[in-house]
Design a protein around this nucleic acid. Structure first.
Lengths: 243, 243
DNA sequence: ATTTTTGCTTGATTCAGATCAATAACTGCC
DNA sequence: GGCAGTTATTGATCTGAATCAAGCAAAAAT
């Protein structure tokens, strides 16, 4: 076994506790690794899959980050998700056998390729894996509901504050600083995701800085006052999400 | 076997093609029925489950309709879903072992009670059932993405038009008229779901009537001009959803 | 049958965030 | 290092939907 292949194993993956192997025995992880031999590099701005692509694989993010988005009939797009290491992409493609959304790397990223038919077969034999798949689906649904709340009822400042706290706590889970991080997405993507315009997002960044809630320079963000920011977000953690 | 029990069988259920049994062989459906012995009646306004209830069952709607909603830290609620016969409720509770949302009957309704641990075990033995569960999860995610588009970028009239078309096509799938139906939810719920106020929704109903797109009297709705309504919705079917 | 409640509609006014517009800063890239 | 093309900030203005405020209809309660 070469070093390159070793690098793909779950055992030495920094996000194994957040990803599919979570809760599996070593023996089951070995089986999972056997169907996850391929790794894929996706450069910043490139697509992992596009809307309409046939569904064959799920993708587990190893490193980097992605946005996923849907495209309406009129060509308009809506960013639906910012995905970080350990998260799965492509789950919404199962029922239609085609990807209804697309995923694009926000920075140079790498993913594990999971052929779904094989994963399905393995899950049939490994209850813990099946449970983990249900769990990931379910968690995803739960989070979407929280975003619906954000878009349905919340003011612009609340939305941005909630996003910053959410991203912060997700980075923290992955072993990075919760208070200082680099946003991998442009303002336009943040705005689109939050149902706002880039101008409004920019103004809010300025306002949050004036209010000493954050310090921001471009995509570099430092949270100075988590309590204050949480008050703006109207909650005590992300949008009740992961954290 | 009594008549009451017979009534619970999938075989004579009008929505079996949309529900869990879809795609299963008769033998597999029999097995499914064995774990689905209980049926539950939920009266209008009553809860099927509440936020925070421990997760034990999934519920398949036999008749009637439900709204599900999440409650924010400040007590504010967001309606996340209107569920019709054949649809499953409770999927978002799996990962946390607790219901993160609640489900309330919009009219007198009945559901099949599916103990999840037994369903899980059965799915392990019946690949077609496992696939159907994945499919339902996946479909749900897909639809949430379409709602995100609606809430993120669309104007009030577009949102309501899309909802009307979506509900119409879902009724049609269940064998009811696509052009004439009774909304089971009050205006406030429609407004909340669409991220609007009840006043705005009411004004839009009036406007759509003036424009001869619909005829509405309270919750009784008739679609007069599907093409016109689709133009307002900016799409050719529901929010790209089920239809 | 009459009061109370709940749900729906309509009008007047306000405001948060969009839109339009102009710079400014940053990122490659010759 | 300088130029072209993004990406971000800031300002002025506008507008769609919220909010505030009645009034009305239908259903539930007395």
């Amino acid at each position: 076994m070469t070093d390159t292949q070793r690098a793909v194993s779950c055992g030495n993956c920094s996000v194994r506790r957040l990803c599919l192997p979570a809760g599996l025995s070593q023996g089951d992880i070995d089986k999972l690794e056997q169907i996850t031999r391929k790794k894929k590099i996706v450069k910043s701005g490139e697509s992992l899959f596009r809307t309409g692509d046939p569904f064959a694989n799920l993708y587990a993010i190893r490193s980097g980050s992605f946005k996923s988005a849907v495209i309406a009939a009129d060509g308009d797009t809506q960013v639906t998700h910012f995905a970080l290491p350990g998260e799965l992409l492509g789950l919404d493609a199962y029922s239609g056998r085609v990807h209804p959304s697309y995923a694009e790397a926000l920075e140079d990223s790498s993913v594990c390729v999971l052929p779904f038919s094989q994963l399905e077969t393995l899950a049939q034999q490994v209850p813990a894996l099946q449970q983990q798949i249900y769990s990931i689906f379910s968690e995803e649904l739960k989070q979407e509901n929280d975003i619906l709340m954000l878009l349905g009822k919340r003011s612009a400042d609340t939305r941005l504050a909630a996003l910053l706290i959410n991203i912060s706590s997700r980075y923290a889970r992955r072993g990075y600083s919760a208070s200082r991080f680099v946003l991998s997405m442009p303002r336009t993507d943040i705005a689109n995701y939050l149902g706002l315009t880039a101008e409004t997002v920019s103004r809010l960044f300025s306002r949050f800085q004036k209010e000493k809630l954050i310090r921001a320079s471009g995509r570099d963000v430092e949270i100075l006052d988590l309590i204050g920011l949480s008050e703006v977000a109207g909650t005590h953690c992300g949008y009740e999400g992961e954290g």
